[in-house]
Design a protein around this nucleic acid. Structure first.
Lengths: 214, 214
DNA sequence: TAGATTGTTAATCGATTAACAATC
DNA sequence: TAGATTGTTAATCGATTAACAATC
């Protein structure tokens, strides 16, 4: 049953989590409704863009009233697929891997880190933030037995490329890639890149162009 | 002396570090020239886009020949402002702060982490990857005395907002923000956000829309 | 009902792609 | 010189903004 829906652009997906974050803040400060106009001032975008973005997914507002904050927050949560728990493993128990393991905020949002994996035998068996480090050769079984959807790769780039290849027939649905490389995966697996070295280069560029008044 | 240059779009800046990364790989594999056509196949973008992007900054190629890999790599490095060292401090010596401190790749690219700062007195004086943890109240002096350009904030969001405010008259030029909030800073300071929670939400969204074949 | 504000169409703007003359 | 490939202009495509009728 082919779903013939309007293609949602990358730019919109980029903005959705930010809407979600602001709505969460409004919610926690007790605001229960907001107009696209007020929301636009808060977020520094146009009201038109907010209404257009939201209407890609449905009419969540009400004329003359605006948007119900709690309702919109929940609707966007559903759109993003974070209305349920996602099980994650982190491959690579280095500094970043441990940082992710210790990051309790993810848990709160329904991203549950179930295990760390590392090729260093001396790390295996240790625990960080209550999350155990398991041996590399148990990854595939672990994914299958524990309903793991996402693998975060916090390993060097060559290992990441190898791992992406090994993961392709495990049923994993998403790779959260912290390695400095692009990954080539079958099209039913989604890759989200966190390229910190590219991020800091953009910072550098913007600092430079800011200072010469461009 | 007002520079009246063409405005470079965010989309182009987004792509530049990726070009840089691929050129670095070509360089290390001994490739010394490449045409926009071959480069486009390698990177999965159009040749037209590559030529357009590069020509915003100058004519780095040569008709009938293509681009010299080493030359282009260096030119993009200059454009990104990474042809010199940038001194960085990391504020917040939690897991992420320590991960950044331990991340030797940055050093290699000219981003030099000089010190960590933490409000926890019991951490002060300790060292991670050769980088010392200093007390919070010494930040301003440290920035001034050590030619610090970038502050990485790996602290909770309320602290990040406070810190962004305190940093505004220290001469700091860039903030690398890992906190889950937007920061309001004077326009001569540049903020680059790394919002991991938004990143994983995008992953979640894309997994969801992939599986229903949208 | 009158006022407010959405949902949605139309207009504008900007980014990407195509095409080709210039030139190495 | 002939062939290859850039730099750059023109055409297309898509995203953002503006406007307003629909409607709560």
């Amino acid at each position: 049953m082919e779903q013939k829906e309007k293609k949602i652009s990358k730019a919109i997906i980029q903005r959705l989590p930010r809407y979600y974050r602001y709505l969460g803040e409004l919610l926690s400060t007790g605001v229960d409704r907001i107009s696209s106009s007020d929301f636009s001032k808060l977020m520094g975008v146009t009201a038109s863009q907010i209404r257009q973005d939201l209407n890609n997914f449905g009419g969540f507002g009400q004329q003359g009233y605006g948007y119900n904050v709690k309702n919109l927050y929940e609707e966007i949560g559903k759109i993003l697929g974070i209305d349920r728990v996602h099980n994650i493993i982190v491959i690579g128990a280095g500094n970043f891997g441990k940082a992710l393991a210790g990051y309790s905020d993810f848990e709160r949002r329904g991203f549950r880190i179930k295990a760390l994996f590392d090729k260093d035998a001396s790390k295996v068996g240790k625990t960080y933030s209550g999350i155990e480090i398991l041996p590399m050769d148990s990854i595939k079984d672990y994914i299958r037995d524990n309903n793991i959807e996402i693998a975060a790769l916090t390993v060097p780039k060559d290992s990441a490329i190898e791992l992406a290849n090994e993961l392709k027939d495990t049923g994993i649905k998403g790779i959260w890639n912290f390695a400095h490389t692009d990954l080539d995966v079958p099209e039913d697996i989604v890759v989200e890149n966190v390229h910190l070295s590219e991020s800091i280069m953009r910072l550098s560029y913007n600092m430079k162009s800011r200072s010469i008044g461009r």
